[in-house]
Write a protein that binds this DNA or RNA. Structure first.
Length: 280
DNA sequence: TTCCAGGTGCATA
DNA sequence: TATGCACATGGA
């Protein structure tokens, strides 16, 4: 075990397998904040945790510690995954080294569905601010933070309410999708095969192939998925393409056939690697 | 001012 | 099946 769980905290003993910056800043979660002292506050559904550093160790503190043990996917061996991916190509070796502490979070389906509808043609800073506005507008006040809204709470919002928050053309997508979800048990999607799950998700308004992949990956931990966005397009054309390719379906097909059931992991290492490098 | 952001939906050929 | 364009908004 690389971590120790107690009643209200988890101590990460091996920081080669857990780096908060890598985990939180690789684009899979929008509800986190870095504090002035370097610690992080992370929110998911109606739960909250803080991550602080103590020498070579990280401490995750929360009153819902079992939830966050699962949330951070602590039972998966990422050393093994990185080792397999590194052997695939030089760029994967570099990417897994660069984002060595990445872990794919296990997040609530409803929160991922709404958040990634908001993500369409949007930038990460703005997605974060819109998700936070949504929580403040109709999520439960937990004292020191606002919970992500429940389906019932989301159902109280009109298209105009959503527009006033700044959702733009996504307002009607969210409005329509939360209504469709009244008839659906989102936990039932856990038992589906990859294609069936993606197919269902794409029947929802505002969800196309890329957003469906993100939801499957971050809410259902389906590692057969490889979301292709502008950044993955850059990754593909920089490191994998024989000739320039803009067709995202073709890019996805080739990359999933390269990485198989480790696709989701590979996607996050590559996304984080390319995006951070281009920022500099 | 113009461009761009973790795309999708819809019309057209 | 494939391509092109509109869609809101705010930061760089």
């Amino acid at each position: 075990m690389f971590y120790k769980r107690e009643s209200n905290k988890i101590t990460i003993l091996d920081n080669a397998q857990f780096v908060p910056q890598h985990i939180l800043e690789c684009g899979q979660i929008f509800r986190y904040k870095k504090q002035d002292d370097g610690s992080y506050v992370v929110c998911s559904a109606d739960k909250r945790a803080t991550i602080t550093q103590n020498g070579a160790e990280y401490i995750i503190s929360s009153k819902d510690i079992e939830y966050f043990e699962n949330f951070f996917d602590l039972k998966t061996d990422y050393a093994k995954i990185k080792s397999v991916l590194s052997a695939k190509s030089d760029i994967l070796r570099q990417a897994t080294q660069f984002g060595s502490g990445i872990r794919i979070l296990r997040q609530p389906p409803l929160e991922m569905i709404v958040s990634f509808i908001i993500s369409a043609n949007n930038n990460i800073a703005r997605i974060q601010s819109l998700v936070e506005k949504l929580c403040q507008k109709c999520g439960t006040n937990m004292g020191d933070f606002f919970a992500f809204p429940t389906l019932d709470q989301l159902l109280t919002l009109s298209v105009d309410d959503l527009r006033r928050m700044g959702m733009g053309f996504r307002a009607k997508y969210i409005h329509s999708t939360v209504r469709a979800l009244q008839q659906k048990n989102l936990d039932g999607l856990r038992d589906m095969q990859t294609d069936e799950r993606l197919q269902y998700l794409q029947t929802l308004s505002g969800i196309g192939p890329k957003v469906a992949d993100c939801i499957a990956l971050f809410a259902y931990h389906d590692m057969n998925c490889f979301p292709v966005d502008v950044w993955v397009e850059k990754v593909y054309n920089s490191y994998f393409a024989k000739e320039a390719q803009k067709n995202r379906a073709k890019i996805r097909k080739e990359l999933t056939s390269t990485f198989g059931e480790l696709s989701g992991y590979a996607q996050q290492y590559l996304f984080y690697f390319k995006r951070e490098l281009d920022k500099r």
